[in-house]
Computed example of a mutant assay.
Amino acid sequence: MRSRLLHRRQRGFTLMEAVLVIMLTGVVAAMVGVFIRAPITGYVDQARRAELSDATDIALRRIAREVQRALPNSVRVDATGQVLEFLPVSAGGRYRAAPEMDGSGNFLDFDSTTDGSFAVLGPPVDVAAGSHLVVYNLGLPGADAYSGESRRVLTSAGNGLASLSYSVGGTQFPFASPSNRFQVIATPVTFLCRPLAGGAGSLRRYGGYAIQAAQPTSPSAAPLAGLSGSDNALLTNLVASCSFDHAVTSERNGLLTLTLTLTSDGESVTLLQQVHLDNSP
């Protein structure tokens, strides 16, 4: 009798009981999965949209921040609306336009083809080696910094300069600035977008190349093809479409409209940003 009771106490689950437990566990897991799947999918989708929005916003803000430092009338966009170039200003000020009452003072003489220096009025300026001097750039034939009419190579370099010297080259600046302003520029900057379906395109920033009369538009041709490192930087990938539009809204103002679409896993985010340009030279 005792042996029979001990035998009953040591009995385990039957095969039927184990199968029933497995079936019930599967049903419960399936029911839980149905309720959890939607929130998890929604979270993943929301995270992907947030990443796309952040990447798009950062790229547009980067362009807007840099283009606000552009030399007046130097922003140019190619015919495709996918290549933007401008000349960033590194320093600026006012030049002495006339001598003192006693005839002293180093002023900029626009009637002289040999005068290549002037005194800086106001705070001194910092000039990096290889910079260029620009006076009254209109972005038009005869007064265009890209072609060289309103631009000269600076021979002065250093920090806290109270006077500047430049290479005249036998021809003085074509026009004096009504407000006696000058700008110091270095090398151009290009933002080049190459969109592809499904978000396989890219947006890159190029810099450090010589100023060209004609706008460079091909990443596989000079001068953009030979650039590397920080002079050929990827701003963002996943680019499905993009456009740059530059409109002159008045004689002294312009409007740059930037549109960028990023796509990932079938979802797209499109942002638009407008930048006011002060074209008063």
Rank of each mutant, 00 (worst) to 15 (best):
D78Q: 08
S3T: 14
H276W: 08
A233V: 09
G105R: 06
Q10M: 13
L260V: 10
V83Q: 04
T257G: 04
R204F: 11
G169L: 08
R61A: 13
G81D: 12
V184S: 03
A162I: 15
P99M: 11
V184A: 02
L277D: 00
S117A: 14
P195I: 14
D54I: 04
N106C: 01
A97M: 10
L133G: 02
V125C: 06
G207F: 00
E66W: 02
L203K: 03
G169T: 08
V153L: 15
L133S: 06
D109Q: 13
R94P: 04
Q183N: 11
V153S: 14
T257N: 07
L87Q: 06
P195R: 12
F107D: 05
R152Y: 09
P223G: 13
S218W: 13
A225Y: 12
Q274N: 01
A225V: 15
S112G: 05
P123H: 11
A70P: 04
S150Y: 04
N232Y: 13
M23N: 13
G116E: 04
S74N: 06
V134C: 12
G169R: 07
P195H: 13
G93D: 13
A59W: 08
G160L: 12
I63L: 06
L164I: 07
C242S: 15
F110A: 10
D57M: 03
S179G: 05
G198L: 00
S90P: 01
A128C: 09
V153T: 10
V21H: 10
A240H: 09
S150I: 09
G226F: 06
Q273H: 14
Q215N: 08
V248N: 08
A47M: 10
S165P: 00
L258C: 03
L262T: 02
M23L: 14
Q68S: 05
A214R: 12
A18M: 12
E100R: 14
R194P: 00
R76N: 07
G116K: 01
A157P: 00
A47W: 05
G148I: 11
Q274V: 07
S165E: 04
L262H: 01
M23E: 11
N137P: 07
G139T: 12
T261R: 04
D265F: 09
D278M: 02
E267H: 14
L71Y: 02
R65E: 07
D102A: 03
G81N: 08
